[in-house]
């Protein structure tokens, strides 16, 4: 029982990070129909930029309060990622909006590997220790179930960021323009919406969320490196599909569900397969879920759009 509860706690934490990243995928997909394969790499850039900032701050202001340092790191990482998101859209994807259907996806794959390579050049191949400025001392709210302050922070921050995004999209003029553009570019443009700006903005917002997610990921595991974004990126994409791609609430739900399935699955896979498979197979869950969802319910848990044959 404790194992189950413990895995649920772990799943919630990882799931809320997936959810943040999934939002970026789902917003871009909703508006352009493009799987921005390189979105995971934005997460990585966020984490490594934050790491670089932290190292700098530790050098010049060793006495600064740890939380302040972390806050500054996040505030540096966000604009860096936002610029990156903007440049990706402006320099590559915008030119391909009317290209044959495989072209934007292939470009996005190339972009993903280009960013990984550039990060490898800048930060090297090694794993870097990410300073864990929020305590990682486990607490025991229920006997036998451990949770760390950093994990609590992750869940709370994710919830706040997502709430902010929902407010932005549903309550503001800007949000209405975004929804209109997602519904139909041409009509939105006729109604006076600057769709190019809205599309660019979508990339920028997604990238900001990814930056936050990157810092949370690195803080949780205490590690950052050039390839850290790839797998979480794929899993977040799976989460977006699971929830119903193009649907914000779906991305959040999908993220949480995927986190839970993965954590609980990893905890029990050995017993379930009579010791044949162990937790090193954890990464398989996401792919299997992705396959199953796409085959049996391509609209996802909350999706309404018909994704096949228009």
């Amino acid at each position: 029982m404790e194992t189950l509860l413990q895995q649920i706690v772990n799943g919630l934490v990882v799931g809320s990070v997936y959810a943040l990243v999934a939002l970026g995928y789902t917003m871009v997909y909703g508006i352009l129909g493009l799987i921005n394969f390189a979105h995971g790499e934005v997460v990585m850039v966020g984490a490594l930029t934050a790491l670089q900032t932290l190292l700098l701050l530790m050098g010049i202001a060793p006495d600064m309060a740890p939380l302040l340092k972390l806050a500054i790191a996040v505030l540096v990482a966000m604009p860096v990622c936002m610029i990156l998101g903007f440049l990706m859209e402006r320099l590559a994807y915008r030119k391909l909006r009317n290209a044959p259907r495989l072209a934007p996806l292939i470009t996005a794959i190339g972009m993903s590997f280009l960013l990984q390579t550039l990060a490898m050049i800048i930060w090297g191949r090694n794993y870097h220790t990410f300073p864990q400025l929020i305590s990682t001392d486990p607490m025991q709210p229920i006997p036998g179930v451990f949770i760390t302050p950093v994990q609590v922070t992750i869940v709370i921050v994710s919830a706040l960021v997502m709430a902010g995004l929902i407010l932005l999209v549903t309550k503001t003029r800007l949000g209405r323009a975004m929804r209109a553009t997602a519904e139909n570019h041409r009509v939105a443009a006729l109604m006076g919406v600057d769709t190019n700006a809205i599309i660019a903005l979508t990339f920028v917002i997604g990238a900001a969320l990814a930056a936050v997610a990157g810092v949370m990921f690195a803080s949780n595991y205490g590690i950052a490196h050039y390839a850290m974004g790839f797998m979480p990126g794929l899993k977040a994409f799976t989460a977006a599909v699971l929830g119903g791609i193009g649907n914000l609430g779906g991305a959040m739900l999908g993220g949480i569900v995927l986190g839970l399935v993965e954590a609980v699955g990893a905890g029990y896979i050995e017993t379930m397969t009579f010791g044949f498979l162990n937790s090193s197979y954890q990464d398989i869950f996401a792919f299997v879920i992705l396959g199953i969802v796409l085959i049996f319910r391509p609209t996802g848990l909350l999706g309404e759009r018909v994704s096949d044959r228009a």
């Binding site: 190339g110 280009l114 990984q116």
Partner: peptide, 11 residues
């Protein structure tokens, strides 16, 4: 670097 640039620039 070469492969990823080749892919993007070609597209």
């Amino acid at each position: 670097l070469l492969l990823s640039l080749a892919m993007i620039l070609m597209m």
